[in-house]
């Protein structure tokens, strides 16, 4: 068990280093984009005087390494800085939106993970039958369609034609829980369509793979029923690869849903990130990308821990 903690600590340290490298890359990349906050805010209305005044106030005239170290210094003290565009603290800009993103990712995961695993088991159990084909074809079809298309189709039928659910998902911290969930259903279903197939296929493939191993044959020969074989004997050995795919998809739900956010006008992190890149609002871009990067690092760590814990061979290496 100590070994496991050591691994986790090592990985966390490495993760911090990765974050540092990522922040440097993002800083350089945004800096390399043509234009800066001054020209982007003023747009067509920019005059050289006004641009120069904004640059001077925001300290954009300083050399890039000074600006980076300045930002890093603040970060180490827990200060994400202020948005260049609105002068509000980045933490307050991101706070609400991060929670919104996490709620939506959570709801989507609550629907899609059990559904995908259930369908995967079902498909494996009835492999090469009609059930398997229907499940596979429909989930693959869903993942093949772009997110915005699924979203528009859902909106057309469920919002516009039937009027069951709203097409704008503008959630708000003041709303009662039930209202918020109602607003999040359509985006969550859209994301379920997008993420389900991947997890379902992985579950199916892993289980089918294991079903041909000798110990399963032994279990069958003992006279166990198919459900019991799968749930008690196969799944425990299948967790590692399945969890890997599941966490990857959850990480995607947190970091990659900007299209769904735009279509449903859901106030999440993705839109903030896009706007901030467009306006070269570096502190916000940095904060958002660090959150995204940390999400991937953490979820990868979780996947590895689960693989280790679920596999005695890895948990107690010789």
């Amino acid at each position: 068990m100590n070994k496991l903690l050591l691994t986790v600590a090592k990985r966390l340290g490495l993760g911090l280093f990765t974050l540092l490298v990522i922040s440097l890359i993002i800083f350089l990349a945004v800096d390399m984009l043509p234009g800066d906050i001054a020209t982007e805010i003023l747009g067509q209305m920019a005059t050289p005087d006004a641009v120069a005044a904004i640059r001077a106030e925001l300290g954009l005239n300083l050399p890039i390494h000074e600006r980076y170290l300045d930002w890093l210094g603040g970060l180490v003290q827990g200060d994400l800085g202020n948005s260049l565009a609105t002068d509000r603290p980045v933490a307050s800009l991101i706070g609400d939106r991060l929670m919104n993103t996490l709620y939506l990712a959570g709801l989507a995961a609550l629907i899609s993970v059990p559904l995908a695993l259930g369908l995967g088991v079902l498909a494996a159990l009835y492999r090469n039958t009609l059930v398997d084909r229907v499940v596979s074809v429909s989930s693959l079809a869903a993942i093949s369609m772009p997110e915005f298309f699924i979203a528009y189709v859902l909106i057309l039928f469920i919002s516009v034609q039937l009027g069951w659910l709203p097409s704008l998902s503008k959630v708000d911290a003041d709303q009662p829980w039930l209202d918020r969930i109602q607003l999040m259903i359509l985006p969550a279903i859209t994301l379920t369509f997008v993420t389900c197939a991947h997890m379902m296929r992985m579950t199916r493939a892993t289980i089918i793979n294991l079903l041909s191993s000798p110990y399963i044959e032994m279990a069958r020969l003992k006279g166990l029923g198919p459900w019991r074989v799968i749930v008690r004997h196969t799944l425990p050995n299948a967790w590692a690869p399945i969890v890997n795919v599941v966490v990857m998809n959850i990480a995607y739900l947190i970091t990659g849903v900007v299209v769904v956010e735009v279509v449903f006008v859901y106030p999440g992190l993705g839109q903030l990130m896009v706007d901030s890149v467009a306006k070269r609002d570096l502190p916000v871009v940095q904060a958002a990308s660090l959150i995204f990067a940390a999400t991937y690092i953490l979820f990868n760590l979780i996947a590895d821990v689960v693989s280790i814990v679920s596999n005695p061979k890895l948990l107690h290496p010789k």
Binding site: L156, S167, L168, V265
Partner: peptide, 19 residues
């Protein structure tokens, strides 16, 4: 005042009476 960047989202919201 709602910021609805996507034209289709604006149109749907108007048709469903959300705006």
């Amino acid at each position: 005042f709602l910021a609805v960047t996507d034209t289709a989202a604006r149109t749907n919201a108007l048709r469903t009476g959300q705006i």
